[in-house]
């Protein structure tokens, strides 16, 4: 009975999330001439800029650098985009939250779903890149495994941020700065060497584990170390659980705070 109830609740939360995400996705592309190509254009432009910059600054060469860079960019983009929007999604949806007893989780989940959609498009572009650079496609089958944990991790952080965002209005701006710092601190366009100062920092950087595992498996076809896989899995499940608990504890107060 109780199990059945929970199942129905989960189903209706997911259903609502999906239709909110679909509607937002449509609205975002509405009236723009290039439509969904914007999703690809943005990371692509960024990618080209960095490739050009790299020709100017001479760093030690990296194997299959374009793939290394692009995979890092799109994975970080996914995390950055979803968490950024989540930090203000509840305040933006205050109309609903105040006027109906709606599953509030759905707003946060719909943001992450929306970024999953666009990530899929970027992934398709990535596959073209792999083919173009004549790398092996076989490593790609491991990506869903990594991406599931990245999604859980992102969802957990999004739950936490959206909760804080109800109480603090300028969280979005603060988080933007944090993300910019993290962007430079994470080895997205450079390679981390053990003697650099950033190496220590990145041991505590969750994104590093996701990027590093994905790159090793997909681009270099080597199995990542068990340690770093375990850390990735624990981060995904742990942060998701913490985020969900924080959200559930606080959600009853949201309607009054907006």
């Amino acid at each position: 009975m109780n199990l059945n109830e929970n199942y129905n609740k989960l189903k209706s939360i997911l259903g609502l999330s999906l239709s909110l995400a679909k509607a937002n996705f449509k609205v975002r592309n509405e009236g723009s001439y290039l439509g969904i190509f914007w999703y690809l254009l943005e990371p692509l432009c960024f990618f080209l800029v960095i490739i050009l910059l790299r020709a100017v600054i001479n760093q030690k060469s990296i194997d299959s650098y374009p793939l290394y860079l692009f995979l890092g960019l799109i994975m970080f983009n996914f995390f950055n985009g979803a968490t950024g929007i989540s930090s203000k999604i509840l305040v933006q949806s205050s109309g609903f939250i105040k006027s109906m007893n709606i599953h509030k989780e759905a707003f946060v989940i719909s943001v992450v779903l929306q970024y999953i959609f666009s990530h899929i498009f970027e992934m398709i572009l990535f596959i073209f890149f792999i083919i173009y650079f004549k790398a092996s496609l076989s490593g790609l089958i491991y990506y869903p495994f990594i991406f599931i944990f990245l999604c859980l991790f992102t969802l957990g952080i999004s739950f936490i941020l959206s909760t804080i965002g109800v109480y603090i209005n300028d969280l979005f701006n603060v988080w933007n700065v944090v993300m910019r710092v993290l962007w430079f601190a994470t080895p997205i366009f450079y390679v981390l060497t053990e003697e650099s100062i950033l190496y220590r920092f990145n041991l505590f950087n969750p994104m590093y584990y996701f990027l590093d595992n994905a790159r090793q498996w997909i681009i270099y076809n080597t199995i990542p170390s068990i340690n770093s896989l375990l850390i990735m899995i624990m981060l995904g499940i742990g942060i998701f659980a913490i985020g969900l608990i924080i959200f559930e504890k606080n959600k009853i107060k949201f309607a009054e705070m907006m």
Binding site: K11, G15, L16, S19, M100
Partner: peptide, 10 residues
């Protein structure tokens, strides 16, 4: 969209 906000399945 409104239907699913009012808790109906597709």
């Amino acid at each position: 969209l409104i239907g699913s906000i009012l808790d109906l399945s597709q």
